[in-house]
Nucleic acid binder design. Structure first.
Length: 451
RNA sequence: GUGGGCGUAGCUCAGUUGGUUAGAGCGCCAGGUUGUGGUCCUGGAGGUCGGGGGUUCGAGACCCCUCGCUCACCCCA
């Protein structure tokens, strides 16, 4: 337990995301929302905790995430609850509960909790962006979902990205395959790494995913799911590949790809960022889960989705110098050296007029207030001192562009600020040859300027 | 859960084989300029040396415990 005399801090494995870093998060979520909403996905908020069985049944008792990493607790009524370790199960639970018309397409942004030892790109609370689409098993939907993930990731500026694609088969073909794989592994048991020699019976697929050289070698000639797909699964996989190729989404088929949750059927995929260390280079992944709705107590309904880790994605962006977001600048900073009531009134008027305005407090000196104005990144300082008070004017001073100070009537400040800021933005754009976008990718739109 | 590295001002760090009032740069505040930011100069504030115990005449330095951070394994976003 932590020392009670020490100041409290964020729990192990969690992070505070404060401004200006948070501005990047905000921009990332906004971009994701815009993209998936344009494709017909609607926002779904579901509780941050669920009945424990939602995850036990949904994700699978055998998975590490449920078996040893889930935050479980009893509430005061003795109910067993768990903090969500991932995003899909709760959304599927909500689908079963509310029976929305299909196809039902939802997106989410949510924290996810896993009780593991933190390290680079791995936290006890991390955040995911994701989509889920339920109600059709059409392979075109697989293509849509994968393409949306791809377009989003490349859209934020990631270039060094790899998409791995695989098929897990379905209840028709997978059991026979698992038997064949088990039979094979039994003959090679002595060659496997210690851990997998133990675990191979319970979870033979994991062995294929093992990074150790022994396991790699021992499984080089192991039977592969792709060779054991039933006709329906094979046809489905072919259509997914054809679709991705048609949309020019590059991928590699990886027949060792095994994802951590039990619910996957048929298409599974994973995006890795080669700019990150291999240990945590998975920035997102997902797949089809045609049996999950039924497991959750609903009518058999196919579905597919993906989740993207925000922290990892931003880490990958850092490694590639991508998605550099500049927080929006204030339009005006009011400098009041006559006691503060003018700042109080003017900032409010500017804000009510839709402008971004701030001020200093505590009646600081003009020098200090101008310094604060400069630091705030505001385009303009709106100065009111004794002189202005007697003439009923305010002085507008450009902080980031050339131009003389001008006096404007106090009653016209909103309009004058708007004009002066537009002019300053215009002249900066002219100099840079860019529309005021200080971010890396230059296509962030200036939605505020067009009013 | 297992193993390695590391905890000194808000931040990045220095601190000689244990020796007196613990330093720097940046940042912050103020003054130079009693009406003008971004440069410059001067000054100032700010430290339970992560916490607890021990060794010693003396500990930021050494030992033990503990908390935290970090990296790797496992697994995953």
């Amino acid at each position: 337990m932590a020392d009670e005399t020490q100041p409290a801090r964020a729990p192990t494995g969690t992070r505070d995301v404060l401004f200006p870093e948070s501005a990047r998060w905000e921009a990332l979520v906004a971009r994701f929302a815009a993209q998936v909403e344009a494709a017909g996905y609607g926002l779904a908020h579901t509780p941050i905790f669920e009945e424990t069985r939602v995850f036990r049944r949904g994700i699978g008792e055998g998975s590490d995430v449920v078996g040893k990493e889930m935050y479980e607790f009893e509430d005061r009524g003795g109910r067993s609850l768990a903090l969500r370790p991932e995003g899909t199960a709760p959304v599927v639970r909500a689908f079963v509960q509310h029976r929305p018309p299909v196809p039902w397409k939802a997106w989410y942004v949510t924290p996810a909790f896993r009780s593991e030892r933190p390290q680079a790109g791995r936290y006890r609370q991390h955040h995911q962006l994701g989509i889920e689409a339920l109600g059709t098993g059409d392979a075109d939907l697989d293509v849509e979902v994968v393409a949306l993930a791809h377009d989003f990731l490349t859209g934020v500026g990631l270039a060094h990205l790899e998409l791995k694609l695989h098929s897990m088969g379905d209840p028709t073909c997978r059991p026979a395959y698992l038997d064949a794989l088990r039979d094979y592994l039994r003959t090679r048991r002595g060659e496997l790494c210690a851990e997998h020699a133990e675990r191979m019976e319970a979870n033979p697929l994991r062995v294929l995913d093992c990074k150790r050289a022994e396991c790699r070698a021992a499984t080089a000639t192991a039977p592969r799911m792709l060779d054991h797909l039933c006709e329906a699964c094979r046809d489905h996989f072919d259509r997914v590949r054809d679709g991705l190729s048609a949309l020019e989404v590059p991928f590699v088929v990886d027949d060792r790809l095994v994802r951590g949750f039990d619910y996957y059927t048929r298409t599974t995929f994973e995006f890795t960022a080669s700019s990150l260390d291999a240990a945590q280079n998975g920035v997102g992944g997902g797949g089809r889960y045609d049996g999950l709705v039924e497991v959750m107590g609903g009518q058999p309904t196919p579905g597919i989705g993906f989740g993207i880790g925000i922290e990892r994605l931003l880490l990958a962006c850092d490694a590639e110098d991508a998605f550099d977001v500049a927080p929006p600048a204030h339009d005006a900073f009011v400098v009041d050296v006559v006691g503060g009531h003018v700042a109080r009134d003017l900032t409010t008027r500017l804000r009510r007029a839709g402008l971004r305005a701030d001020r200093a407090f505590d009646q600081r000196s003009m020098k200090a207030q101008l310094k604060a104005a400069d630091r705030s990144g505001a385009w303009l300082a709106v100065i009111v001192g004794p002189d202005e008070l007697t003439t009923g004017e305010a002085t507008l001073r450009q902080l980031r562009a050339r131009g003389d100070q001008v006096a404007v009537a106090l009653g016209d400040v909103e309009l004058a600020v708007r004009r002066a800021v537009d002019a300053a933005r215009g002249s900066e754009a002219g100099r840079d040859g860019k529309a005021g976008a200080r971010g890396a990718d230059g296509d962030e739109d200036d939605e505020e300027e067009t009013r």
